[in-house]
Design a protein around this nucleic acid. Structure first.
Length: 343
DNA sequence: TCCTATCATCCGGTGTGATA
DNA sequence: TATCACACCGGATGATAGGA
């Protein structure tokens, strides 16, 4: 395992002064044992015989994945930081003398969850808990998307052309080249926004306007337009729907439930600019819609970036699900801690 | 002692930033 | 622009730990 400096002193001080001990609060407010059932059901294998080394506690392993998303650390870093930090050990319920899972064990655990495709189930199970507690009200919903940058590939033009066609370049095929193929992301795509180039995926989310909790999400490559995923995000629970002008269009209106009030921004066109009234309407809508930007800001600043380091859509989707779930945990402890009007 | 999950290590591969 | 060091991902395999 590699050990190297990752957190500088400023990080530590910032964390201590601004957040107190967030991990302690995560343990206080999140009922981790609620996830034990689904994790055991999915991961526990039938014993093939007597004996065998016992696996690490699945809930503890799951908490490690949340730690990784909260602090944006790799598997190797997670192993090192758990050994190094008492706050991490306390969060996981480990004593100083306890064995810490190897970086590869963490990788394998995540891989099992990806293969079983249960991170969505876990995410929506937590959303249901929040609905039952009436923390999510659906009095207003906001839809938006953000780029999730992935490691940029250095493919040749010909290789990129093949990938665009949905094929795998021949040079990556074959027994000898299986390592190369496993390192190549053929699902991530390029996209440009505000003259900035992005490579990777998109996290399309719907949040509850009042609590700023994520209630639904979907993932695509970065090249898919925001509006294409709207139908997957809206549902009958939505009463008022907010979104920016990227979601304007004839087909789009069809997927909005009839009872839902449409508060999507109006869009100006060439030779048909917005009127003063339309601009004023957009400004009024913006006051609510902007709340979704706070979600992305928390992910960028507090959770140290919206990125994935994995390869392929399945793993990226799992990592994005974990990221959204971690954000919801974070937001939940904030709401529970203050017990004050939502900021 | 057996069985098997996990560990340790190696290898192949990519991306990024510093430097010349 | 090329090269290098470093950090990291993903997979394979033999060794090891620990319960029955």
């Amino acid at each position: 395992m590699k050990q190297h400096g990752f957190f500088d002193e400023n990080d530590r001080l910032k964390e201590l002064s601004a957040l107190g001990d967030p991990l302690e609060k995560l343990n206080k407010y999140i009922k981790w044992d609620n996830f034990r059932g689904i994790l055991n059901k999915t991961l526990k294998k039938e014993a093939q015989g007597p004996g065998g080394r016992p696996p690490f506690d699945y809930v503890m392993m799951f908490k490690i994945l949340i730690l990784q998303k909260l602090y944006n650390v790799s598997d190797d870093q997670a192993e090192y930081q758990i050994k190094d930090r008492l706050s991490f050990q306390r969060f996981l319920g480990l004593a100083l003398c306890d064995t810490v899972p190897d970086a590869k064990t963490i990788w394998h655990f995540r891989e099992e969850l990806v293969k079983a495709n249960i991170l969505d189930t876990i995410f929506y199970r937590f959303v249901r808990q929040l609905e039952e507690q009436e923390i999510i009200s659906y009095s207003g919903s906001i839809v938006d998307a953000t780029f999730v940058d992935a490691p940029r590939q250095r493919n040749s033009k010909a290789e990129n052309q093949k990938i665009k066609e949905g094929k795998v370049p021949e040079e990556w095929e074959g027994k000898k080249k299986k390592h190369k193929k496993s390192q190549k992301d053929i699902d991530a795509r390029w996209a440009t926004k505000n003259k900035e180039r992005h490579y990777g995926y998109k996290d399309h989310i719907k949040i509850d306007a009042e609590s700023k909790l994520i209630t639904k999400f979907s993932t695509t490559s970065a090249a898919v337009h925001d509006s294409q995923e709207l139908s997957k995000l809206v549902d009958e629970k939505d009463n008022i729907l907010y979104a920016d002008s990227a979601y304007v269009g004839g087909e789009i209106q069809k997927c909005i439930p009839r009872k839902a009030k449409n508060r999507i921004h109006e869009k100006g066109y060439r030779n048909r600019p917005l009127t003063k009234t339309q601009k004023a309407n957009n400004t009024r809508k913006s006051k609510i819609r902007a709340r979704v930007e706070h979600v992305f800001a928390t992910m960028t600043n507090t959770m140290r970036g919206i990125v994935v380091r994995s390869i392929g859509m399945a793993r990226a989707h799992a990592n994005i699900a974990l990221m959204n779930l971690t954000y919801n945990f974070w937001r939940y402890i904030f709401l529970m801690r203050g017990k004050r009007a939502y900021a």
